[in-house]
Computed example of a mutant assay.
Amino acid sequence: MNYTLHQLQIFLKITQLKSITKASEALFLSQPAVSIQLKKFQDQFSIPLTEVVGRQLYVTDFGWEIAEAAEKILNEVQAINYKTMSFKGQVAGRLKISVVSTGKYVMPYFLSDFINKNKGVDLVMDVTNKGSVVNSLEKNEVDFALVSVVPNQLNLDRIELMENKLFLVGGTNLKLNKKTSPKKLFETFPLIYREDGSATRNAMEAYIASHDISTRKKMQLTSNEALKQAIVAGLGLSIMPLIGIKNELKNNDLQIIPFKDLPIVTNWNLVWQKSKNLSPVAMAYLEFLKFEKDRIIKENFDWYEEY
């Protein structure tokens, strides 16, 4: 056998995405180039690795076995590269972070300088729902997680990054009567919620309950982007994090509606298990945040103080 690391990488990506087209996009290669390398790799085995039924590509049982071995080989090669860089005095390794969906507007700004400065660091950032973020912490699958509400069921350390402000938001196409009482707004316009378990939804429900607000029809959407589009289209109102609507406010697609005791203010926290044995890369990142956090906030979130 004479397969290459490049072929192992391509085959592993095909098994992960179950598509040559998607694998080519993920690897920034042309589809014909991926197909050629897959054929060359397959030709070295007497048992099929994949099969096509209809127009769908399937991985055979033997193919899954080879994919598992390929992943182990590639991880070992990466480990060798990390060790080489470390011996040269460079920060090298993999940094894994799980981020709640709205946190995607925050976390990249606290990562870019660190990643650009340390070329030997590979970033794996999973943007998902709160339940999955907490689960990844519990299973020790990540170094850090970004949350706006720290889960109290886990024993965690944390660094507060910046404030998270939640305002009542509506589309600019809604004709709001200035004489309408604040509570009447909720009776007139439907409320749009995030999915169950979302920290934004929990904060919104607690606010409504504590202010004894009666609401009309309500809707539920499972992503911040979908929620924004629904509000822009005039489907209703919602209480939303300011961090995710900068462009919509600038473009006059959304408006902040003044309301009693709003904004709700929490904090974005980078958290990790207290018992976790942090890698050198994770320790280096915490040290970076210690000295650079305030500068990053000042340079990238000065607009935040206008609201």
Rank of each mutant, 00 (worst) to 15 (best):
L8S: 07
I14N: 06
Q16D: 15
K22I: 02
E25G: 00
E25W: 02
P32D: 07
A33C: 02
K40C: 05
D43K: 08
Y58V: 05
V59F: 06
T60V: 05
E65G: 06
I66Y: 03
A67E: 09
E68Q: 15
A69E: 11
I73E: 11
L74K: 10
N75K: 15
E76R: 14
Q78N: 09
Y82E: 14
K83R: 14
S86C: 04
F87D: 08
R94S: 04
K96P: 01
V100F: 02
T102Q: 14
G103H: 00
Y105E: 13
L111W: 00
S112V: 15
I115H: 00
N116G: 10
K117S: 14
K119F: 07
G120M: 05
V121K: 01
V124C: 00
N129S: 09
V133S: 00
V150R: 05
V150P: 02
V150N: 00
I159G: 00
L161D: 01
M162R: 03
N164V: 03
F167K: 04
V169M: 09
N173I: 15
N173L: 13
L174P: 04
K175G: 00
K175P: 00
N177M: 05
K179Y: 01
F186K: 05
P190M: 10
P190E: 08
P190S: 08
Y193C: 03
R194V: 03
D196S: 12
A199D: 13
A199L: 04
T200I: 13
R201E: 12
R201S: 11
A203T: 04
M204Q: 15
E205K: 11
S210I: 05
S210G: 07
S214Y: 08
M219A: 13
T222N: 14
L227W: 11
I231Y: 13
G234H: 04
L235T: 06
S238E: 08
G244I: 12
K246Y: 10
L254W: 04
T266F: 07
K274Y: 05
K274A: 04
S275H: 09
N277H: 12
A284E: 15
A284C: 06
Y285Q: 03
F291W: 10
R295L: 10
K298N: 13
F301W: 06
